[in-house]
Design a protein around this nucleic acid. Structure first.
Lengths: 154, 154
DNA sequence: CACAAAAATTTTATGCTTGAAATATAGCGG
DNA sequence: CCGCTATATTTCAAGCATAAAATTTTTGTG
């Protein structure tokens, strides 16, 4: 084993594994959300973000939090508005922006979905002991940190 | 700390972290593939699968390997065929199916892309020592195993 | 052989996603 | 107040993704 070949391959394997787990879990969540609540993961994500920010979020803040494009959020919010789950309100003193918030109905729907969502995750990751979960989460967090600052080493 | 509340929350955190890391890395890969090779992640994935199976794969095998829907693969392969990177061949004795393979051009393109791809991953996960990568990969693999068999405990 | 069930694939409808272009408003320097 | 630059959002074109319906071919089974 070369002192140089191994690390790269090991990291590639790690990445492929990460991808596999994530896709698998995402797929299950997607299916459950569809069959049990007639909704989708992106919609759940948007509602989750709005639930954490009860004072509302601007479209750009929403796309920032979710790490998706601006135009993407427009479409998802449009549909949620049609169904009366969220509302677009005016921003005091800035007619360009608007503040998106959950409606009462949106809050109620989300509460139910979030409870189930947590249970599904718990079930899917059941083989993972709590302390090991924490451990893994920390390592992954370190990775996220490193990725956040691409070239801050100026 | 309740003996019951913690595990579920810890697992939820783990899941959210997994999602964050994966999306971040995926986003970077996507951008690189686009700017440097004018291609996309799904196309790369398809070519990667075909590269590992030089004798070719049927459409259904391809969607099985990649864990995406049948109809999805149809569209991606269509575009790769248009660009002369893959070909659809007949399957001996079954006119329903067809065998998808990389063309010579496809092989050449993929070789270049795969080399870069591995380097990008290596760079992004640089903070992760090789042995820790292996460790993590193994834990994740256990998770995948558990997820593969949903109710095999009949 | 006939014909129903199964298998391989494509088509269709709908929604997600992106990057880029377009639109509209804000805010600043002169 | 004019005009420029920046900010907030939407629109647009293209591709990705899924589930369900449709198509074509194969494979039993009587």
């Amino acid at each position: 084993m070369a002192a140089d070949e191994a690390p790269s391959k090991a990291r590639l394997r790690l990445w492929l594994r990460l991808l596999k787990v994530t896709r698998k879990v995402e797929g299950r969540l997607r299916e459950r959300l569809r069959t049990e609540f007639a909704t989708t993961l992106p919609r759940f994500d948007v509602m989750s973000a709005l639930n954490r920010h009860d004072q509302g979020l601007k479209m750009s803040e929403l796309s920032g939090v979710l790490k998706v494009s601006n135009g993407n959020v427009t479409g998802i919010v449009d549909r949620l508005v049609e169904e009366g789950l969220v509302i677009r309100g005016a921003v005091e003193g800035d007619r360009r922006a608007n503040l998106v918030r959950l409606t009462r109905k949106g809050h109620e729907h989300f509460a139910v979905q979030a409870r189930e969502h947590e249970a599904w995750i718990d079930e899917m990751l059941a083989d993972m002991p709590a302390n090991e979960s924490e451990n893994l989460a920390h390592r992954l967090d370190a990775l996220v940190q490193a990725l956040e600052e691409p070239e801050s080493k100026k």
